[in-house]
Design a protein around this nucleic acid. Structure first.
Length: 362
DNA sequence: AACCCGTGGGA
DNA sequence: TTCCCAAGGGT
């Protein structure tokens, strides 16, 4: 796959590596060569900003310092360490992959892209990142930063979602990474995209590649990369309730596979459009947890935006319920003290509902 | 191919 | 407010 390295490529590589040595930001995972720690950082950094990741990475490595610790941990503890980061399948896949590594690979992180990609949650990007950064393999990465840098540098003025364009970009990234310090070369491309060649602004005066850049020459860097507009998130409403019975609150575990899979939550349901929240709540509790509540007090609502949904969540409190708990659409349930609810791994949207409930007196 | 899957920050 | 999007992966 590697093509002959031209002098222009060598020059680009030299400039990137020299620039990166001087300008790279300080990040905790740049202080280690531990493949496990690097892998965790790459999983957390998927679609997530560096500043957000740092405290999560520190805590995660402290709780689960190696593959075996992660593989044998309680899944609730893993999700608890992930709570608030989003895209929770990443955490479940991370532990699933750790089990495979622990059982089938002698606890050693694979050092080749093909084996890495066979693991759950590791795609082409993450495999290339781990192979190059942790194992000095000349494997390319292509993330949002690299796409932006390369489309501008090379003047690629086609929709970057097109498979042919994606393959071209992988090929270009592969050409650039052939040579010494592949991990630094890849990180230099990403760092340049994150700090200089940014989406809504360019800082071309500080760019080590400015005199090679096609978009700078043409003057259309801000229009690249070309991509389709994103669809608006659909508006949805839902209801949720803190149900108290004999001093205990009902919590339910959301099914793996869907939204916020594996996380604990207060029972509730999505609302049919135009439905009355209070009536829908009574119905939902009956159907989904088998309980009959006599009265539900609405304490307010919270707004929350997911990638493809804009949610208005109506929050209720129910003092008293009768019937035997029977679940439909939830994986399990517990009756626990109200104070203990927030200790279970839960999503940001659930935290908003809990905060609202805590603000309102009984 | 198109959709699903979180969250928070910045312009 | 609205929009974009940030070191993507799975189906």
């Amino acid at each position: 796959m590697a093509s002959a390295t031209t002098s222009a490529t060598r020059d680009t590589r030299r400039r990137l590596l020299a620039w990166y040595r001087i300008n790279k930001r300080s990040m905790p995972w740049r202080e280690t060569r531990d493949p496990y720690a690097i892998w965790i950082s790459e999983a957390m950094l998927q679609q997530t900003r560096v500043e957000t990741v740092i405290p999560y990475w520190e805590r995660f490595l402290e709780k689960f310092p190696d593959v075996h610790a992660l593989a044998t941990a309680d899944t609730d503890d893993v999700l608890g360490a992930w709570a608030g980061l989003g895209y929770y399948s990443r955490a479940r896949n991370l532990q699933a992959a750790a089990c495979v590594i622990d059982n089938a690979h002698g606890g050693e992180i694979p050092d080749d892209v093909e084996t890495l990609m066979s693991l759950p949650g590791i795609g082409r990007y993450t495999a290339g990142a781990v192979a190059s950064i942790a194992f000095d393999r000349s494997e390319p990465v292509l993330d949002g930063n690299v796409k932006r840098v390369l489309t501008r540098l090379l003047g690629i003025r086609e929709d970057v979602a097109k498979p042919a364009v994606v393959e071209r970009l992988w090929s270009e990234a592969d050409t650039l990474v052939q040579g010494r310090s592949p991990g630094d070369l890849n990180q230099a491309l990403m760092e340049l995209g994150a700090t200089i060649c940014t989406p809504r602004a360019t800082h071309c005066a500080e760019c080590p590649l400015v005199d090679q850049c096609d978009a700078h020459r043409v003057g259309d860097a801000m229009k690249l990369p070309i991509k389709a507009k994103k669809k608006k998130p659909r508006k949805v409403e839902a209801v949720t309730a803190l149900i108290l019975r004999r001093g205990k609150a009902l919590v339910v575990k959301r099914p793996v596979g869907g939204l916020l899979g594996g996380l604990w939550d207060l029972p509730g349901a999505e609302l049919a459009s135009g439905a009355d929240p209070a009536g829908a709540l009574i119905e939902a509790l009956s159907q989904r947890v088998g309980l009959t509540v006599s009265e539900a007090t609405r304490v307010g609502s919270v707004e929350h935006v997911f990638t493809h949904r804009r949610l208005t969540l109506h929050v209720f409190r129910c003092n008293g319920a009768h019937g035997r708990t029977r679940l439909a659409g939830f994986e399990s349930h517990r009756w626990i003290s109200q104070r203990a609810v927030s200790d279970l791994p839960h999503a940001a949207v659930t935290a908003k509902a809990l905060a609202l409930l805590a603000d309102v007196p009984d």
